[in-house]
Structures are given as C-alpha cells and as structure tokens.
C-alpha cells in the first residue's frame, strides 16, 4: 500500500511517500515560498525518484489545518482532486497533530503551536499513550497567555513544538515555569512521514465534501453573524 502525504498548511511544505513499514521518501522545506508553484513539481519529483506512478497510489493523506487559509487550501485541493480522480481514499489529519507526533518519546503533554498573530496561537493538547498519539484537548485558536494559564492547572510537564515557539517562549516560561519544556529546532518542522502514518488510522473522508479545518470563520462571516445577533 503506497500512501502520499501532503502538508502545505504553514511555511513548512512536506511531501512523503510511504509503503508498508517503510518511508520511501520525504521532502521538507521551511521557506517563505509559494506553495502553489512548488507542491505539484515536488510531488512529481518524489514519485519519479521512487519510481511510483500516480495511478499506483493507494491513499492520499493531507494536513487539513489549522494554518494559513491559502496554504491549507492548496494542499486540500490537490489532495481531494488526486484522491477523487484516482478513485482512492482520502484521509485528513490535523496539522497540529502532525506536529505533535514529533514529541513521541516525551512523557507528558504536548502542545504543538502555530502563531496566529496578536498574541494568539493555533494549538491543541496531545499525549502519547501506549505509543499512540491521542488528543487531550481539541485544536483551537486562543490567546497564548490564556492557553498557558489553563495548562498550569494541569500540573504536568508540557512540551511545546513548532517553528513559532520562539515567538512565545518567554510568555510560556513566565506562566508555566518548570512545567514548560521546549523541543529542539530539529523537532520543529512537522514531518510528512508522520502525517502519512497518522492518516493510515484515520477514517476515509467523503472526498467531495472534504474541506480544511480553518477553526476560524472568515472575518466577513463572523462580522455578519455578529450583526445578525445584534439585530435580534
């Protein structure tokens, strides 16, 4: 079974091809470059290098967000179009869960995060139990200070992962003190091979209706809803 995994939800672009018990190939960059230009040529190059034809793929796995709206959409559009047209299953995995997988041997809670500007982050809480990554608290968009406060009450060590951790490291330290643990830079890129393996245990999505998990409404929509509520 050959699985192609695609993650374009943030600056990190990751493409992986796995087969039973083996990572055939994996490509990761952490660059502020245009995903739309690079993803398809990268998928083509990786499959060529591994001598795998698109029609030989058995499953597509995609990081479904949260992250950059445009970035997530590029990956999801490619993934659902490929899965639909090749008539193979599609699985979606949280972009944060993918990043959390880098904390495999940490004995405690894992908080993967992406910066969401103005002191906010996209984050969630995960934990490895019996070698399986489990969600402890669902992915959300929250003020980092509020998030850190809420973790304090758990009185457990929390590992923070992600390329945006340095932006928030001081705030986290101030609030959590010794309970906060930070990964090394080499653990900060989400890995598409982890994404691929996580996707193996996810249910097949309904391809046509599959959409990113943006977490947030579009700005115009939340303003509109606010107006509707005010006028009631």
């Amino acid at each position: 079974m050959k699985v192609l995994a695609i993650d374009t939800s943030n600056y990190v672009m990751g493409i992986a091809l796995i087969e039973e018990g083996k990572v055939l190939g994996e490509y990761i960059t952490n660059l502020q470059k245009n995903h739309s230009v690079r993803v398809m040529p990268c998928i083509e190059a990786l499959l060529n290098e591994c001598s795998v034809k698109p029609t030989e793929l058995d499953k597509i796995v995609v990081a479904k967000g949260p992250g950059s709206y445009t970035g997530v959409r590029i990956g999801v559009t490619i993934a659902k179009t490929l899965a639909w047209t090749l008539k193979i299953p599609l699985a979606g995995v949280s972009s944060l869960e993918t990043l959390a997988a880098n904390g495999r041997f940490f004995n405690g809670l894992i908080s993967p995060l992406f910066d969401a500007r103005r002191g906010q982050v996209y984050t969630g809480l995960y934990e490895f139990r019996d070698g399986v990554l489990r969600s402890v608290r669902e992915d959300q968009n929250i003020l980092l200070s509020d998030w850190a406060q809420s973790l304090k009450d758990l009185a457990k060590p929390v590992l923070f992962l992600g390329n945006d951790v340095p932006i928030h490291q001081d705030t986290v330290n101030d609030i959590l003190g010794d309970a906060s643990v930070f990964g090394s830079i080499s653990m900060y890129n989400p890995r598409p091979s982890e994404l691929a393996f996580l996707g193996l245990s996810k249910p097949d999505e309904d391809i046509h209706t599959f959409v990113p998990n943006y977490i947030r409404l579009a700005e115009a929509e939340s303003k509109w809803l606010e107006q509707q509520n005010n006028s009631l």
Binding site: S36, I74, T77, L82
Partner: peptide, 14 residues
C-alpha cells in the same frame, strides 16, 4: 488557486 491546483492535480494524475 483552487482551479489551478485542481487542474494541475488532474494533469499529473492522468
């Protein structure tokens, strides 16, 4: 971007 990337995926797949 949606049309372009869907078109590229189709072009590549077939």
């Amino acid at each position: 971007l949606i049309g372009v990337n869907a078109a590229k995926a189709l072009s590549f797949a077939h």
